[in-house]
């Protein structure tokens, strides 16, 4: 059994892991669709989006591990597989169980919209490696957003059943939106150093783009929830432990195992 690593939780490391872990955990969730999507084309789409997200996560985790510094650097695999739950900083939104297809495409739209806006800003990061990762990822996120948004429109503006399911998903997922845009010391440090924007700055453009998708789908945007989820501070929902168990099992049991 491989022991956990101790993460050097500097603000810059946390800022990058919020993004990298969000990509990583959503990719893990999307992997659950493999062989289960309603049509073959969407099965391929889920896996392809997951693949892009894993690639983005790899870049960010590798870089975050180097930034840990003080002789405590870790590589991408150690960060992906050997952290304790509270050292993951993904949004709670992406750890929620797979749900039905309406839930999946709506969540993908919400996350892709956020990531697209984030990558656009990060392409001008003061950190050249982050800027390079973002320059590539923004093109991918744009495609994910278009594809997933297209499905939200088709389902929202589809049959009674598809509309009912999309409305239900919207109600569930919207509870986790405030977490996206709450700023804290990690954000302020990133904003001050030029590493990346405070996520609160992305709120208005995100809402505007989501409004555009929901309008086209004939869905009403819910009011902001009072509930506050805290995944990006390392305090997760009850679902996170199960994801990590599945994701980490192989590397914990067979340290350094490769395909």
């Amino acid at each position: 059994m491989q022991a956990s690593i101790e993460l050097n939780r500097t603000p810059a490391v946390q800022y990058l892991l919020r993004i990298g872990d969000t990509c990583l955990v959503l990719a893990q969730r999307l992997g659950e669709w493999c062989g289960h999507a309603p049509v073959l084309e969407e099965d391929i789409a889920m896996a392809n989006i997951a693949l892009d997200l894993v690639g983005q996560a790899r870049g960010l985790l590798t870089h975050a591990g180097k930034l840990e510094g003080e002789g405590r650097e870790h590589d991408e695999d150690q960060l992906a597989y050997l952290r304790e739950e509270r050292d993951y900083f993904n949004l709670t939104l992406v750890e929620l169980p797979r749900g039905d297809f309406a839930f999946a495409v709506l969540r993908n739209t919400m996350v892709a919209t956020l990531l697209k806006l984030l990558w656009q800003r990060l392409a001008a990061s003061s950190d050249a490696e982050v800027a390079a990762i973002a320059g590539k990822a923004v093109k991918e996120a744009r495609y994910h957003q278009q594809h997933s948004g297209d499905w939200v429109v088709r389902l929202g503006d589809g049959t009674d059943e598809s509309r009912r399911r999309t409305e239900k998903a919207l109600k569930q997922l919207w509870l986790y939106v405030p977490e996206l845009f709450e700023s804290d010391a990690v954000d302020e440090a990133a904003s001050a150093s030029g590493l990346g924007p405070a996520w609160s700055e992305l709120r208005e453009p995100w809402l505007a783009e989501m409004q555009q998708v929901l309008d086209a789908a004939g869905l009403a945007m819910p009011a902001e929830a009072a509930f506050r989820s805290t995944g990006k501070h390392g305090v997760h929902s009850e679902h996170m432990g199960y994801i990590l168990t599945e994701m980490q099992h192989l590397q914990r049991s067979f340290p350094g195992g490769v395909w």
């Binding site: 320059g135 093109k139 744009r142 957003q145 278009q146 297209d150 088709r154 555009q212 998708v213 086209a216």
Partner: peptide, 13 residues
């Protein structure tokens, strides 16, 4: 697209 500037979401069927 080449400049990676903000682009409207393009929903297409």
């Amino acid at each position: 697209a080449a400049a990676n500037t903000a682009m409207p979401i393009k929903l297409f069927g």
